[in-house]
Write a protein that binds this DNA or RNA. Structure first.
Lengths: 101, 101
DNA sequence: TATTCATATGAACTCATAGTCATATGAAAA
DNA sequence: TTTTCATATGACTATGAGTTCATATGAATA
């Protein structure tokens, strides 16, 4: 995802096609967090998170604001939550045998 | 996507994180089509399409029925279209600088 | 302004997944 | 029942996204 623009659906969806990023989203769904907080909660190394967060930010799926030394990330719930809801429903009604968690 | 189940969001989204599959979806949005029809319209080789279609079927994003020698694929519009709509809106309102087409 | 804390970035590496090609399967018509 | 048309499948390769590690940047405090 370097040097290209979010100019196609698939670029956007790459953010959702990755377990770590889904994990980040799940965490931020609960509450805004700094990189270190995410690192502890998810037990994932800092730079790994920063890279992932950069992608999420790139497509405006998360926002960030500087708070003291920390940078706090928050989820763009307006877009993500409805999408996840649709998938949940899809799983129940259409996707027999598929288990989305 | 072999030997694993559609048991997580990211497996589902992998189908949308790929230009070809998005192209297939765009075609099937217009009308149900056989593999050969897709091959001509998208100018993509047959086996490539069959592989992609297998993934899409795996997550119930498309359905298929045998019609004579052909197998006709159709889009599961109930799930996909609302999602694409959300992205379109996201692009307009949240994703300044991003151009989803 | 030097130091420390917090995060971002770059480059190299790894590995998953899309793509390729040859071949198998399956349905219908001859 | 053989041939042809249509699609699926398997194995291999290549591409690109995720990971890692070292280092840079940036904010705040001493």
């Amino acid at each position: 995802m370097k040097n290209i623009h979010c100019d196609a659906y698939h670029v956007f969806f790459k953010n959702l096609a990755n377990p770590l990023k889904i994990g980040i989203i799940a965490e931020l769904k609960e509450k805004p967090s700094s990189v270190n907080e995410l690192s502890e909660k998810l037990n994932v190394e800092q730079s790994k998170l920063s890279h992932s967060l950069a992608n999420l930010r790139f497509c405006s799926l998360v926002n960030s604001k500087q708070v003291g030394k920390k940078r706090v990330y928050s989820l763009n719930k307006k877009t993500i939550l409805p999408i996840l809801k649709i998938i949940d429903k899809h799983r129940q009604t259409e996707c027999t045998g598929c288990k989305v968690k």
